[in-house]
Design a binder for these strands. Structure first.
Lengths: 133, 133
DNA sequence: ATTTGACCTGGAGTGCACTCCAGGTCGTAG
DNA sequence: CTACGACCTGGAGTGCACTCCAGGTCAAAT
């Protein structure tokens, strides 16, 4: 199957402009063109875009995604390096999750404080001062 | 206790420039000054900075942090709105953690593929083509 | 007395990841 | 046959969150 840029945008969740942008910066190999010169994205293109958006979601900078994309073009010889990039990204995602979990705990604590205050609107109890911190 | 801007930067993990920037954009109330006109941060200032950096870590945009900071200045009457902001942020952090967890699973899958390929360097087995996707 | 180093201000510059724009080409629908 | 909508190109503009800079002040050390 092949897809117009509008359809590719819809399926990938990226904007049309972003698709052209990704192509310009070589994140995406130039897709095929139809007889009128319009882009015709393949299923492979869409799969790659899907993976790219996952990498983006993990916070991988475009620079690194470009490196990965460029390695991919150099075939099997680059597999070790590509794997290393993914392993490093996995590490950073796990770290980020832990960090966010810590923030979640702090948010819960703060929210509980607000709830304590709601229950004792009269009189200042220990914990009240937290509300202003 | 009070702290020079350099010390406050060290303790908060923010740069000196960022501290002045946060003050300019009203994330941080102007700290006290010493006789020479230099900033003298209090423990309260440092605690607030600590909380701000947590919010930042969760991906809260500065715009929202400013709203929270501004509400804080309006005392107890703003408590409900402040709590609502934190509850919303908790929701978005939990969502983000789930999203990252999904990405982690995909990374694991890809990394496993690379490992499968490493073990069977000769001959193309099912899964090999994944390496180029 | 002068040098040094930390600090001050207002404003300009940076890097990232898009996003928008003007002006043009195609192919189908009316 | 012309009007429309979707697409094309190269390049400029945007928003965010800092980060850097020039030129100046001040207090303590040499």
């Amino acid at each position: 199957m092949s897809y117009s840029i509008a359809e590719a945008a819809r399926r990938s969740g990226l904007s049309i402009d972003t698709l052209r942008y990704y192509e310009r910066i070589k994140l995406l190999d130039p897709p095929a063109r139809d007889t009128a010169g319009r882009r015709a994205y393949s299923d492979d293109d869409l799969n790659w875009l899907g993976f790219l958006t996952k990498l983006r979601t993990t916070g991988m900078p475009i620079k690194s995604m470009r490196e990965y994309a460029s390695l991919r073009r150099h075939g099997v010889a680059s597999a070790a390096r590509r794997k290393a990039l993914l392993v490093e990204q996995r590490r950073s995602v796990a770290e980020r999750i832990a960090e966010l979990q810590g923030c979640l705990d702090i948010l819960d604590y703060k929210i509980e404080n607000y709830e304590r205050v709601e229950q004792k609107v009269l009189g200042i109890e220990p914990g009240m001062e937290e509300i202003s911190a």
